[in-house]
Structure formats: C-alpha cells, structure tokens
Design a protein around this nucleic acid. Sequence first.
RNA 1: GGAGGGCUCGCCUAGUGGCCGAUGGCGGCGGUCUUGAAAACCGCUAUGGCGCGGAAGCGUCAUCGUGGGUUCGAAUCCCACGCCCUCCGCCA
Length: 418
Amino acid sequence: MIDLRLLRADPDLVRGSQRARGSDPALVDALLAADEQRRAAITRADALRAEQKATSNEIRGAEPPERIALMEQARALSAKVKEAEAEQAAAEAALREAHLAVPNVAPDAPPGGEEDYVVLREVGVKPDLAKPLDHLEIGERLKAIDTDRGAKVSGARFYYLTGVGALLELALVNLAMAQAVEVGLTPAIVPALVRKEAMEGTGFLGAHAPEIYRLEADDLYLVGTSEVALAARHMNEIIDLSQAPVRYAGYSTCFRREAGSYGKDTRGIIRVHQFDKVEMFSFTTVEESYEEHLRLLAWEEEFLGKLEVPYRVIDVAAGDLGASAVRKFDCEAWLPSQGRWLELMSASNCTDFQARRLNIRARGTDGKPVHVATLNGTLMASTRSIVALLENHQEPDGSVRVPKALQPYLGREVLQPA
RNA sequence: GGAGGGCUCGCCUAGUGGCCGAUGGCGGCGGUCUUGAAAACCGCUAUGGCGCGGAAGCGUCAUCGUGGGUUCGAAUCCCACGCCCUCCGCCA
C-alpha cells in the first residue's frame, strides 16, 4: 500500500507512475476520493461518539427524573452512533479496496511493459558450442534428471533429481548458504506452509493468487518463495534497525501452480511446480533501501561468478514490476540450447509498500515508529541454476565441467555420463 | 481425534459493568548521589486515526486475541471464531 500522505501531497507523482506502468491513473483519483470520504465519515462518527460518551457519563450521577430523560437521550444517540459507525466501516472498506488497487510508486524504473527493460550489463563469455544439447538431454545422460517419472508420479512439471543431480542441488545450496553467512546474512530455514495473513500481507493473493497452492482442509498456503515467510516473520512488530539492516538468507521449497503458462517451457526443469531456493531478504530504512538493493544485486552477481555462467543484468520496466516493487533487477543466464537469456535471479526493492500492509516498523531518529523497507533477491534457485550449469559447461563428449567454486561442495571436477 | 486451561501496555501481573488507556513489579531510558560503578531514591516509559498548528504540541476518537451482541455505558456479561498451552490417544 502506498503512503496516503505522499498521495495527498503529490498526486501527480502517483498518476505519472501509473502511466509509466501502463496502469490506470484514474485509480489514483478514486483513491483520493475514498480517502476524503473516509475522513469525513470518521469526523462525523467521532463527534457522535463524543456526545454519547458525555451523556453516558452524566447518567452516572443523575437522580431519577433527570436520569430517565438522559437515558432516553443516550438511547437515541446510541442508535445514531451505530449508524455513523456503519458508514465509517463502509468508507474504510472502500478506502482499503482503492488503496490495494494502486501499486507502488516507481519513478526510477524504465517506463513501459515487459519488452521495455534496459540491459545494464552483460558479463562473461558465451560458450562456443557446435551442437549444444539442452539441459534435459545432458541431465538424462548423466542420470541426473528424470522428468518422465516425475510426470508419472506427480504430473507435468514435476521431476526427480537423482545421483549427481541430487548432489548438485545440495552443493549449490551449500555454496549459496556459505556465501550468505560470509557476507553476514542470517541463514534461515522457514515454513513452506503459511497462513492467509502471511500470504495476503506479502501481496501474493492479489494478481498472483492463481499461482498459489492452497490447502483447503487446513486453510494454509504453500509458499511460492521464502520471501513470504521471511517478510511475514516480523509482521505486526517494531524491529530494531538502529545498528544494521535485518538480513536473512531463507532456504525453502517453493511451490507454483504455473497457471496460465500452459505450453510454455514444457521441456525439462526450467518451469516446474516445485523447486528449492535460497532467498535473500532485507529490512532497512526506506532511505537505505536503494543502496541495499544494489548490495543484493552485487551478491547475486557474486554467486553467478562462482557458477562461471555468462549472464546479463536487466532493469525491469515499470509495467513488469509487480505491485510491491519500485524497481527490479533480473539476472539472466545464457541458455545455449535456445540461444536466449533465462531469468535466474530477481532482486526487488519494495520500499515501505509491503511493510505497510504487514505492519512492520522501526524506530525513526525521533523515536517514532516508521514503516521499514523490504527487499528480496534470489541467491540460488535450484532448478534453473542446474539448467544453466549443465548447458554452459557441457563438453562435446557429454560430460559437464564443474566450476571451481562448486568443486569442494560436490567433490568432483567433472560430471561423467553413467 | 478426545478432554481441559488460557489470551490485558517489551516481559510478568492487578483489574468482574461507570474518569480504566487501564494497577503493581521487572526490564529500558533520564536524573540525584559517587573518583567510577553498584545500591538507594526521583522522574519518564503503547499504538493508530481524525482535527488544529510551521513545529514542539494541544484536542478528540479508537484499541485489553478477532468479530458480533446485550447495555445509556463493556477489559469486565453473552455468542461465534482464531491462536497458544496442558493431558490422553495416534503417528513420526
């Protein structure tokens, strides 16, 4: 949710942001009107409540004849208060709805839609492969990836990682966690099932709702990223940011329904219903958040360097940001088999948008609570990291070279077809 | 799955229909004393909305798990829900 004070002070800024995102600027005016109506309703209800309270207090000391008259009066007021409170509740509900409809203000992101990203840099050299195999072909030869039986047991977009495939994932997790600890993130293993409040508070029940698995019998949701559990960890809290940002590296399985992506990336493990991920998450002040965002990106690139995979960094356009983010950088690895880039990581700065909904605050310099900024960034997404590794490090003989940084965690320098 | 107990301001706790936003202790912050520290003593120590104000602030409303209800008036009475805990059973 955006800051209503900012909205009142500078509605044109918000309207401009809406246009840059390709969203409707009229939503801004609807929000302004709802805000106005809510405040008017509160003023009316407050006045009536005050009057009723005063009358009630008079009754306490009053003698019978006067007392009866006062009670009559109070009864009438009570009915009016009830009415005014219903109006207030309706106005508040309307405001909330209008409030949720307006995404975060993103003045720094490139304007436009999905295709309007800006490439910030390209790093590394694309491998020179005469006839590159795709990751599934390589993975099957290594007996590392088995999607056929994944489908037999669980359906499309499920898979088995076996042998070096399984070991590869564990090595990647360990490499990522080691880096996380080294730079000072708090390693965390988090719930993969969360309550509605956590899902809602992080904003995933809005546009993302069809993407989310829900367990009907228990009214719990399967997280699509540990961002949910990490962000919600401090919901309704005032946290201490006076010394340093609060930073986590959360490891969890991620579940995604992939509704609406039928026919897309159907081969292999590029787009799956379940994978494991190490996610970085920071709580900072809004002022610090822009710098923190670059820090998360730098840590992502550091990890990509260890994978020795060519990649590029893009500045995602406003229209493709998601409601919470003011800016998002994606790291995309080169995919030799398809001759295109594949999103491996994503770092978003949500400023105080998400924290306002989750009610997460910190003490400002004056001691008063202010909403914090939240940021999230992928450190290591298992399946796509494996895809990038297998394809970029494949050798003509079907073996796969293991990047140096990963060797100690995997215990070998090359993966040989079985 | 069955049976109980509980949910009050960071923590513990008082409060069972009327100045209760709420008692007391601990912790925290500030001060007095001290060469310094401890002890002792004194003071301060929730949050949000709305209005006024440049601001400090002032006024007002709301909040005692959540939502309803009873009542002129609810932390206190009633109902529903949520959550936590304990015991039994079952499973890991």
